[in-house]
Design a protein around this nucleic acid. Structure first.
Lengths: 113, 113
DNA sequence: ATCGTACTTTCCTGTCTAGTTAATTAACCG
DNA sequence: CGGTTAATTAACTAGACAGGAAAGTACGAT
């Protein structure tokens, strides 16, 4: 089950922006509309709207429409792919990373979700 | 000890390219010169040289000069920063991620490296 | 129906990135 | 020294990307 190269590229590209990472961080505290997501930032709403679209295309968030509001929610799958990808580097991340390793095996065996 | 936002941006940007990820993967199997890194790819040497420079600036690899060869070696720190950053999302990555969590605490306590 | 709210889309700009070829630096080898 | 190998730098091009302003869409309220 290798992680798709293309998916990883999109995910990493999406994560390579401070505003988008801040949006994700905000969403760990619960759903939010695009307007709410925009609040803390000093950029226009269209700019945020585009960031949201990038995150959505990467599968990192999901948007559901309620009336004229788009509520955004975190989707964990791409982050799991990143964790899986990192397994390649476990030997370089220290000796006792067997726990991370173990976690990954569990994931692959469907024991965790 | 929060991870520097800027560092994460550079790291993710560096990882958002299939060739650069392949270079890193290659380096898990041991050091390699720029020429050796270039071999599997259908792009010019200068292109690979630039990829190497991007990885270097992100701190993901280290280059040591031996005669006219530049030997490249993996540096794990930025990947550890990514793992640390992912800790924010542990609740979204499944319930039994305490192992990952544990691993991270160990890292912060300097117990692992 | 029309107004306001909440976005999204379009268009345009400047900047960044990946790739090319050609020229350059650096080190070793005879 | 001159030549060869290894890699970087320079100069350029085509495409992606972040941002803004302005126009467009969609829904709810009145």
């Amino acid at each position: 089950m290798p992680v798709l190269d293309d998916q990883l590229t999109t995910t990493f590209a999406a994560l390579a922006d401070p505003i988008r990472r801040a949006i994700l961080a905000r969403l760990t505290r619960g759903e939010a509309t695009v307007g709410q997501l925009a609040e803390p930032f000093d950029v226009s709403l269209p700019a945020i709207s585009k960031h949201v679209k990038v995150l959505q295309k990467a599968g990192l968030i999901e948007q559901t429409r309620r009336a004229q509001w788009r509520s955004c929610r975190l989707r964990p799958e791409p982050l799991r792919d990143v964790v899986s990808w990192m397994a390649l580097y476990r030997d370089f991340l220290g000796d006792s990373v067997e726990r991370l390793d173990q976690y990954l095996s569990d994931l692959q065996n469907g024991e965790t979700p």
